[in-house]
């Protein structure tokens, strides 16, 4: 398998993941499912970043017994993804906290219903 084909494979796979995630995010009517789509999307982006740093036949950028391998992958995208993963879990935690509280106060996590309530809340407030 040529490196070119392999890198295309990763590009296509990450594009597919992002697309599936985005589709889920946009089309889901249940909040938790939309959030699941978000995590898939982030996974796709992470895959793309790792594949950017990948070199055919390269070793991880870690010295063994004080000796670095001759050919190493690029460490920068890895550092970026570590950051992105932690950011992702933080945002997900906040989103789930919001969802939990929303469920406690509104009793539903169905987005169309919540949207209708939001609209009527706006006009009710106006009338007052």
């Amino acid at each position: 398998m040529t490196p070119d084909l392999l890198s295309h494979l990763f590009s296509i796979a990450s594009a597919a993941l992002v697309a599936i995630g985005l589709f889920m995010l946009v089309r889901s009517h249940y909040l938790l499912r939309a959030l699941l789509g978000l995590t898939l999307m982030e996974a796709g982006v992470n895959l793309f970043l790792v594949s950017v740093g990948y070199r055919e036949g390269a070793a991880p950028p870690i010295a063994i017994d004080g000796q670095l391998p001759a050919v190493m992958v690029d460490p920068i995208p890895q550092a970026l993804i570590l950051t992105a993963i932690v950011i992702g879990v933080g945002v997900l935690g906040l989103a789930l906290a919001l969802a939990l509280r929303l469920h406690q106060s509104e009793g539903t996590l169905w987005l169309p219903r919540l949207r209708r309530r939001a609209q009527s809340a706006c006009s009710k407030e106006d009338a007052a």
């Binding site: 870690i62 670095l68 890895q78 950051t83 932690v86 950011i87 933080g90 945002v91 906040l94």
Partner: peptide
């Protein structure tokens, strides 16, 4: 020995501080 660590804490340490901040904001 781990170059990813050099990048995370050394060359791009400011990003790591920002990331800790994001986790803090979220929490």
């Amino acid at each position: 020995a781990n170059l990813v660590t050099s990048v995370v804490l050394g060359y791009r340490g400011l990003d790591t501080l920002g990331e800790l901040t994001i986790l803090f904001v979220a929490a």
